[in-house]
């Protein structure tokens, strides 16, 4: 447990400190949210319909792009070898990395998502739900993204490869979250979507570390 706390602190330090930290993810998020209305036209009634979906999907992209080098750094400088030999299992290492990414990027993005949605013209009643969806979905985005990053270890073309691996896996959480938001906007019961999203996130948190550890062991062989 002590090893895990130290590990988590190290990862958090890296995620917050190095290379811009959450600011970079937030800046990317702001860029995407700015460019989308430029592409789809600025008619307010049209934007208002699209706003929750845009804010939600851009979250997935921002989470994905900020974690492609989650394992690569440690793999290249040999730290991953040391971590594999250390007291904490590779599963715990992977868990700590993804959790730190969620705390450093997922949580700030969850705060930014409602702002973006309302700025685009969505009704303010979606603010609490969008925040909850972004928090819960962010977990799934971080852990699935970490899985993609660990599988792509050692390849020459990281970013695009991770995106191609991970984005299809993002389909269920994107659907569940968008479904809940859509239902709320349409005055329908929205709890099902949120519960399904939570269930999916919990499952990824439980299962992805196993796959990530297997992928890291494979890369370190």
């Amino acid at each position: 447990m002590k090893a895990f706390t130290i590990l988590l602190r190290r990862e958090l330090g890296l995620a917050w400190g190095k290379g811009g930290g959450p600011l970079l993810a937030l800046a990317f998020y702001a860029c995407v949210v700015t460019l989308l209305p430029l592409a789809s036209g600025r008619a307010p009634e049209r934007l208002a319909v699209l706003a929750p979906g845009i804010a939600w999907l851009a979250l997935a992209l921002a989470a994905l792009l900020s974690l492609e080098r989650l394992f690569e750094r440690d793999y290249e400088d040999g730290a991953l070898d040391l971590l594999a030999l250390g007291p904490a299992s590779l599963e715990a290492v992977a868990f700590a990395k993804c959790l730190a990414h969620w705390l450093a990027a997922g949580a700030p993005l969850a705060l930014a998502a409602p702002v973006a949605a309302v700025a685009l013209g969505a009704s303010p009643i979606i603010i609490p739900l969008l925040f909850l969806c972004a928090l819960a979905g962010g977990l799934a985005f971080s852990f699935l993204g970490g899985l993609g990053a660990s599988l792509a270890l050692g390849s020459k073309r990281g970013g695009l490869l991770v995106a191609v691996i991970v984005l299809p896996l993002y389909a269920p959480p994107v659907i569940f979250g968008a479904g809940a938001l859509d239902a709320l906007a349409g005055g329908l019961p929205w709890l099902t979507g949120l519960v399904l999203l939570l269930a999916y996130s919990v499952a990824t948190v439980a299962l992805c570390p196993l796959a990530m550890a297997a992928a890291c062991r494979n890369a370190l062989d």
């Binding site: 599988l151 792509a152 050692g154 390849s155 691996i165 890369a219 062989d221």
Partner: peptide, 15 residues
């Protein structure tokens, strides 16, 4: 894509 992106055949296979 993953299979063709890794140079080492056995590693690509397992990933």
């Amino acid at each position: 894509a993953l299979r063709s992106a890794l140079d080492d055949e056995t590693k690509a296979a397992r990933a």
